[in-house]
Computed example of a mutant assay.
Amino acid sequence: MSKVAFLGGGSFGTALSIMLAKKGISVNIWDRKLSVINDINIKRENIKYLPSITVPAGVTAFTAIENATKDCDIIVLAVPSHAIRDLCKMISPHLKQNQILVSIAKGIEEHSSKRISEVMEEENPNNPIVILSGPSHAEEVALDIPTTVVVTSKRMEYAKIVQDVFMTTKFRVYTNEDIIGVEIGGAVKNIIALAAGVSDGIGYGDNSKAALMTRGMSEIIKIGTKLGGKAETFYGLTGMGDLIVTCTSMHSRNRRAGIMIGKGIPMKQACEDIGMVVEGIKATRAFYELKEKLHISMPITDVLYKVLFENKDPKYGVHELMSRNKKDEV
């Protein structure tokens, strides 16, 4: 039975820790916040990120990252995408070559436009890299609500090891060899979820959200295939599945932040009120820069970028989207 370490005591990392501990797997968690460590070890609860859910005795939290990763077969990087490179640098001196590194972040690195797996490979070239993605709110995973995700890697034998370790009767894990498609689908859907939240905040209805999700999927496929992903991947869990759950659920921090922004609350205040990283904001800037370099039309991303970073009125942004030149859907 594998031993797993989670680096980052946020909501999703904690939820997966709870799930694995219930399966009988020994789990370590490392976090920078001493309060999170003490709450897990003493109160058996992650009060800040996953309140009111018991953390089993099989989960132990650590303040020293080298102690958390020692003797673990799988190390999960459970931090936001912008923190991945620094975390990889931090753990590099403590890694053994046979330890599998798993990322559960969804995004790309700003300015370099590198996918998470590419960042990890640069910093930890001697370790196998696996990406876990899909529609999986932490609040539901922790409560054993049936969930499906996908794992991918350049070396699929390691993705299959992670599949075996994480698979339960309530958490179904698929494999997909299209690592580019899986990573890009999971990243761009955060942009569309943020836009869907803005639409809700303005007061628009189901018609508007259906339009955003459908045309948003078009943008995901357009840039995803341009970068080398397979179109069929985006109709699966990491594209269509993740898009549905993040655009429609109040568990989605991207949607919740978007709702506040749509109501006129400043972006910075919305993020502070959410209390966790809103990946869609960084993704919007990163993919706006990338699509400009690639000369790809992504009108929803365009307008959202202007709303977030150029103070464009959201309603006028919608007007711009709706009044563009007519075109064929396909």
Rank of each mutant, 00 (worst) to 15 (best):
R285K: 09
K96Y: 10
M167C: 15
F234V: 06
D313P: 02
G262M: 00
S11F: 14
C271E: 12
E289V: 12
R324H: 07
I129V: 14
P125N: 07
N311K: 11
S297D: 10
T168V: 02
L194I: 01
E232I: 08
V130Q: 10
K326I: 12
K189M: 05
D71Q: 11
A195K: 01
V318L: 11
G280F: 04
T152A: 15
S26Q: 14
S117I: 11
N46Q: 15
I104W: 02
H251K: 11
K209F: 02
I296T: 04
K23R: 09
S17G: 07
H319P: 00
K170P: 01
S297L: 08
K154L: 15
A61I: 02
F309S: 07
N38P: 08
Y49V: 05
F171Q: 05
Q97E: 11
I259G: 00
M90Q: 13
G216S: 01
M298W: 02
R155W: 15
L194T: 04
L95M: 11
M217F: 09
L16V: 04
E329T: 08
V76Y: 01
N41M: 09
E292H: 13
I221S: 11
P266M: 06
G205D: 06
H111G: 08
G205Q: 02
F62C: 05
V130P: 06
K106L: 07
N325P: 02
G317H: 00
A5H: 03
F287H: 04
G280L: 07
H319S: 14
D73S: 14
D31Y: 08
K106T: 09
M1Y: 10
G239S: 01
S11R: 10
D313W: 00
C271L: 08
E320R: 00
P93W: 04
K282F: 09
Y174A: 14
T301E: 03
D328C: 13
R215K: 12
S2H: 10
G10Y: 03
K189G: 06
M156Y: 02
T246C: 09
H111C: 11
I191L: 06
H319A: 14
L77Y: 05
K160Q: 15
A286K: 01
R285W: 13
S103L: 01
T169C: 13
M250P: 09
T169Y: 11
F6H: 07
I274W: 01
L212H: 05
E289C: 15
I145C: 08
I244R: 05
V119W: 05
T152M: 02
I25E: 03
N311S: 12
I53W: 06
D164E: 12
I42V: 11
E279D: 07
I145D: 05
S113E: 09
I184R: 02
V245L: 14
D302A: 09
I100T: 06
V27H: 01
L308I: 12
G224H: 03
A15L: 12
E118K: 15
V27Q: 02
M240N: 07
V4P: 06
D164T: 14
I180H: 03
N126Y: 12
N254P: 08
Y235A: 08
V4S: 03
V130Y: 08
S92W: 09
I47K: 12
M90D: 15
S117F: 10
N38E: 10
T225N: 06
I220A: 01
M298A: 13
I145E: 07
R44S: 11
